[in-house]
Simulated scan of single mutants.
Amino acid sequence: MKLRQLAVALLVNEKEELLFLRKRKEDAFFANFYLPIGGHIGEHELNNPEAACYREIFEETGMTRSSIRDLRLAYIIHRLKETEIRIQYVFVGRVHANQILVPSNEGELFWMSTDSSTLTTNISETTYELVKHFKEHLSTNEAIFVGSMHSAQGLPAITWSTLEDWERKQ
C-alpha cells in the first residue's frame, strides 16, 4: 500500500466564491476538471503541510503569504484509491476577489460560487463533498473536520467528525 499526502487550499473571496484551477484538457490526471488549489506534499514538507500549501498556492496562482488572510487547517480527508491511501490536508483562507493571479501552466484559474448548479460539472467527488460540507458547516465553525471517503449505497460520500483532544480539560 502506498501513501500519498496532499495539501489543498480552499481560497475564499469576499463574495464567498472559491478559487479553482481547471486542469488542461490534455492532462492525464483530472483533465478538464475544476480542482481546489493544491498538490503533493514534498518529502521535506511531510511534517509541515501548511508550508506545502503555501508553496502550491504560489506555484499555481502567484499569490504570496501576504495575500492570504487567516489560512488554517480545516479538513483532513482520507481516501483509499486502488492500492493508495490518500490523505488531503485542506486549508481555508481568505483573499480579495480582485487579487492579481498569475497564469498557471497547470490550467486556468476561476472564481466559482458554491451553489449546487456550479458544482455539478467536472468536479471530483471528493471536491464536491468537501465544498458541500464547507458551505453547510465551516463558515461558522473553527473545528478541524476529519473525513473518510466511502460508498453510501453506491454513491460517493464522506463521513465527517471533528478532530478533538479528548484529554484536554474544558
Rank of each mutant, 00 (worst) to 15 (best):
E14V: 14
E14F: 04
E14T: 14
E14Y: 07
E14N: 14
K15I: 01
K15P: 00
K15S: 09
E16P: 00
E16K: 12
E16V: 02
E16A: 14
E17F: 00
E17K: 11
E17A: 03
E17R: 07
E17D: 14
E17M: 09
E17S: 06
L18Y: 11
L18T: 12
L18I: 12
L18E: 01
L18F: 12
L18M: 10
L19Q: 09
L19G: 04
L19D: 02
F20C: 02
F20M: 13
F20I: 04
L21Y: 02
L21S: 07
L21C: 08
L21K: 03
R22K: 15
R22T: 06
R22M: 14
R22P: 00
K23G: 02
K23S: 09
K23W: 03
K23Q: 10
K23A: 09
R24F: 03
R24A: 12
R24T: 13
R24G: 10
K25Y: 03
K25I: 04
K25V: 06
K25D: 05
K25M: 04
E26S: 15
D27Q: 08
D27E: 12
D27H: 08
D27I: 09
D27Y: 03
A28G: 13
A28T: 11
F29R: 15
F29S: 08
F30G: 04
F30Y: 10
A31Y: 01
A31F: 00
A31Q: 09
A31G: 13
N32T: 07
N32P: 03
N32H: 06
N32F: 05
N32I: 05
F33V: 02
F33G: 03
F33M: 10
F33H: 07
Y34T: 01
L35P: 04
L35F: 01
L35T: 07
L35G: 00
L35K: 08
P36E: 09
P36W: 00
P36K: 00
P36C: 10
P36M: 05
P36D: 02
P36T: 13
I37N: 11
I37G: 13
I37E: 15
I37W: 01
G39I: 08
G39A: 08
H40D: 14
H40E: 15
I41Q: 05
I41V: 15
I41H: 00
I41E: 04
I41W: 06
I41C: 01
G42C: 05
G42F: 07
G42L: 14
G42N: 10
G42M: 14
G42D: 14
G42I: 07
E43Y: 05
E43I: 10
E43V: 11
E43L: 13
H44L: 11
H44C: 06
H44M: 07
E45A: 10
E45I: 13
E45C: 07
E45V: 06
L46D: 01
L46Q: 11
L46P: 04
L46K: 05
L46H: 01
N47G: 15
N47E: 13
N47P: 00
N47R: 09
N47A: 04
N47Y: 13
N48R: 12
P49K: 01
P49S: 10
E50A: 11
E50Y: 10
E50V: 12
E50S: 06
E50M: 15
E50H: 05
A51Q: 11
A51F: 02
A51D: 09
A51I: 10
A51S: 04
